[in-house]
Simulated assay, not measured.
Amino acid sequence: MSAFAIGGEHRVRRMGFGAMHLSRAETGRDDAVAVLRKAVELGVVLVDTAHLYGWGANEELIAEALHPYPEGLLIATKVGVRRVDAPREAELCGRPEFLRAQVDEGLRGLRLDRVDLLQLHRVDPEVPLEEQVGALAELRDAGKIGHIELSEVTVEQLARARRVTEIASVQNRYNLLDREHDPVLDACAAAGIAFLPWRPVHPATAASDGAVAAVAAELGATRAQVALAWLLDRAPVVLPIPGTTALRHLAENVAATTLRLDADQRHRLSRG
């Protein structure tokens, strides 16, 4: 499994695991713990979570399953969303004091003294971006954060943030059938910034016809594996973080790193 050094420091294999789905009510706790432990057993060293996922419960689940953490395991979490009353349930909050408090909550839940990769879950339009990123930079300087990540940002927002501090990675929605953020990925590739696509497998890739199905048949792979292989082929900075609650799908996702697309397959998939 190929690797990439996030922030020039944390060398991780290029297939991570997104833990969001493990917070679903229908996922039993024992099953969720088993999936997390199997992911590490299969060689996954990047686990992505967020305070929003169960309002801290997902972070606590990861600690229950994996603490004390194996050497080299990189836990990434997110802050910047707060709980509010129904019907909204959640809203963005990028005020520095809130970000600081939520980082402390995440550290407690994950049983960490420092979170190696901390992400601003979304940019709060009510707070200057520079203040939000600056607050995270202060936490990094205080030793509570290793590296800073942004989510759902534009090229312009990424550039503004980088004028404040170093940005190690970006997490935007991106997959074979949803390439709105091509310019952001290209900017990350040019700067050597890791790009973690969320929703890396578009539901439409399950269709039984089209280029994805054809390439899957040629490779003896699943359509989801082909979609993940295309992402890995797109740029060396891409680190997909597919999530699943099923051990079988987890193994298939990790195995996608062994697929190799030839020039014709790459062309057909990219053409859509």
Rank of each mutant, 00 (worst) to 15 (best):
residue 213 A to Q: 15
residue 213 A to P: 13
residue 254 V to Y: 05
residue 229 A to L: 02
residue 238 V to S: 04
residue 208 S to E: 14
residue 243 G to R: 07
residue 242 P to I: 02
residue 194 A to W: 06
residue 256 A to M: 04
residue 197 P to A: 05
residue 197 P to Y: 04
residue 201 V to Q: 00
residue 214 A to V: 14
residue 203 P to S: 14
residue 221 A to D: 05
residue 220 G to D: 11
residue 196 L to K: 03
residue 257 T to S: 11
residue 194 A to T: 15
residue 247 L to T: 12
residue 227 A to M: 05
residue 216 A to R: 07
residue 234 R to C: 08
residue 247 L to E: 11
residue 249 H to F: 11
residue 250 L to T: 07
residue 220 G to W: 13
residue 255 A to N: 08
residue 207 A to Q: 11
residue 215 V to D: 12
residue 255 A to P: 03
residue 225 Q to C: 01
residue 257 T to Y: 01
residue 198 W to R: 07
residue 230 W to D: 01
residue 221 A to M: 08
residue 245 T to A: 15
residue 232 L to I: 00
residue 208 S to F: 11
residue 200 P to G: 03
residue 230 W to P: 02
residue 237 V to D: 09
residue 246 A to D: 15
residue 234 R to Y: 05
residue 223 R to V: 11
residue 220 G to F: 09
residue 207 A to D: 12
residue 238 V to R: 02
residue 202 H to T: 06
residue 239 L to F: 02
residue 218 E to D: 08
residue 220 G to Q: 15
residue 219 L to S: 09
residue 254 V to F: 01
residue 246 A to R: 14
residue 226 V to L: 10
residue 229 A to S: 05
residue 251 A to V: 10
residue 202 H to W: 03
residue 254 V to G: 07
residue 201 V to Y: 00
residue 213 A to I: 12
residue 213 A to L: 13
residue 241 I to S: 00
residue 243 G to C: 07
residue 211 A to N: 08
residue 206 A to R: 13
residue 239 L to D: 01
residue 215 V to H: 06
residue 243 G to P: 10
residue 218 E to F: 08
residue 243 G to A: 06
residue 248 R to L: 15
residue 257 T to E: 05
residue 225 Q to D: 07
residue 235 A to E: 06
residue 244 T to A: 09
residue 243 G to I: 02
residue 235 A to N: 06
residue 251 A to P: 12
residue 204 A to T: 05
residue 228 L to K: 08
residue 200 P to E: 01
residue 215 V to K: 13
residue 211 A to T: 09
residue 225 Q to N: 06
residue 220 G to E: 12
residue 236 P to V: 03
residue 249 H to V: 12
residue 228 L to Q: 09
residue 242 P to G: 03
residue 232 L to E: 01
residue 231 L to R: 03
residue 232 L to H: 01
residue 195 F to C: 09
residue 206 A to I: 11
residue 256 A to G: 05
residue 216 A to T: 04
residue 243 G to Q: 11
residue 235 A to G: 08
residue 217 A to W: 01
residue 245 T to R: 14
residue 213 A to E: 14
residue 257 T to L: 05
residue 256 A to C: 03
residue 223 R to H: 10
residue 200 P to T: 00
residue 229 A to M: 04
residue 238 V to A: 02
residue 241 I to G: 00
residue 212 V to H: 10
residue 196 L to I: 15
residue 255 A to G: 13
residue 195 F to H: 14
residue 201 V to M: 03
residue 218 E to S: 08
residue 201 V to E: 02
residue 250 L to F: 09
residue 253 N to M: 04
residue 228 L to M: 06
residue 250 L to C: 08
residue 206 A to E: 15
residue 222 T to N: 15
residue 209 D to Q: 12
residue 245 T to C: 12
residue 211 A to D: 10
residue 210 G to A: 13
residue 248 R to M: 12
residue 199 R to N: 09
residue 203 P to G: 10
residue 202 H to P: 03
residue 224 A to V: 01
residue 244 T to F: 04
residue 226 V to F: 07
residue 206 A to Y: 14
residue 205 T to K: 11
residue 244 T to D: 07
residue 226 V to S: 06
residue 234 R to M: 04
residue 254 V to Q: 03
residue 257 T to R: 04
residue 212 V to E: 12
residue 202 H to D: 13
residue 201 V to F: 00
